[in-house]
Design a protein around this nucleic acid. Sequence first.
DNA 1: CTTATTTTGTATCGAGTCGATACTACTTGA
DNA 2: TCAAGTAGTATCGACTCGATACAAAATAAG
Lengths: 176, 176
Amino acid sequence: MLLERFGRLLQSRGHELGLKPAQWEALRYLGRANRFSRTPSGLTAYLGSTKGTVSQTLIALEDKGLVRKKADRDDRRAVRLELTAAGRRALEADPLLELEASLDVLGRREEVALDQALTSVLAGHLERTGGRPFGLCRTCRYFEKNATDGGPHRCSLLEVKLSADDSEQICVEQEA
Amino acid sequence: MLLERFGRLLQSRGHELGLKPAQWEALRYLGRANRFSRTPSGLTAYLGSTKGTVSQTLIALEDKGLVRKKADRDDRRAVRLELTAAGRRALEADPLLELEASLDVLGRREEVALDQALTSVLAGHLERTGGRPFGLCRTCRYFEKNATDGGPHRCSLLEVKLSADDSEQICVEQEA
DNA sequence: CTTATTTTGTATCGAGTCGATACTACTTGA
DNA sequence: TCAAGTAGTATCGACTCGATACAAAATAAG
C-alpha cells in the first residue's frame, strides 16, 4: 500500500537536525494549533498517542529550548505550550517542507483530487476510531463569524472571542 | 499536511498484536517480495533504514517465530529470509487491512486518481533521494515475458528463470 | 596469486518512542 | 463534601534508529 510507504518515507526524513519524528510532529502541531489546543492533552489527541509519551517528548523539546511551558491561570492542572523563537526557526528548516515541494509534480486538479480523497478516507477512519478531525477553527460548527460582542469572531462552545488569527488555526474542539 | 497525519495514524495502529510498526513493515515486505529480494539488505533498501536497525528487527521477528533465516548456498555472506507459517498467519490479521478497507469510501475513479498522484510524487522523491521503486517484477525493464529457455519468464539482469508467482512480486532490482 | 576494496551482515551505544501502569494535584458535580 | 473525572508526570521494558565498529566473504586490481 502506497500510503504505508509514504509514512515510512516521512518518518525516515524525521531524524534530521537532531530531532526525532515525534518531536517534529509536536513542533508542527504547536505551530498550527490555536491557543486552546496548545496543551499536552491537545497534542496527545492529535498524535493519537498517550499522555505519558507526549509528556516525555515535550520534556525533550523543552530541554532543547524549542518549546516553553506556562501555567494556566484558570486551571491549575493545565499546562500551556508555546514555541520559542528557536522553535519557530526550527520549523522553517522542517524537512517536510521539501517533501511538500514534491507535490509540485502534480497539476492543480490532481492536487485537489488527492486532498479530497485523503480527507474523506481520514474522516472515515477517525469516525471509526473516535479520533478528532482537528480542522480549522473557522470551519467549526461553534464558530460564529462577525459576532456582535466586540471581537471579530466568537466560539460558542468555549464562549470566548476569536481573533482573525485564531480562526485560521486548527483546534481540538473543531467539529464539522 | 494530510500525508503526515496518515503516516502517524498508520503507525499508531502498528502496535497491535504485540508487534511494532517496523516489525509489521518487515513482515509485509517479506510477504510481497520475491526470493531475490528477501534478504536483510533488500529490506534495508525498502525501509530506507540502516543495516544495523534492520538486523535487530529481524532478530526480534525470529525470536517471535515469524521469520526464518537460511544460509545462501551461492553467497556465504548472504542470508535468505522467509516467513514461517505463523508469520503468514500474522499477516492475515494485519491491522493495515482494516485501514485499507477505509478506501472503500472512494469511488473507482477517485481511487485510481489517488494511486496515480501518490505514485508520481513517490517517484519524484525516490529519484531525488536515490531510493529504489520496488515495483512488480513483471513491470521491470529486465523482465522477459515468455522467454524461450524453459521457464515461463526470465530476468535478464540476474539471468534466471522466473515463475508466474515470481513475476507478481516486488523486487529490489526493478527498474521502469 | 595476492592484495585492496566492496558487499553482507552482526554487535553495541545512546537518545528517544511508546504502551502500560502507577501516581499526584486539581476540578467538577452529585 | 466527597467521589469521580481530568491534566499531567514518573517509571518500566521492549523496541527503534543513527552511528560506529567490526567480521567474513566476494570481487576487483595489480
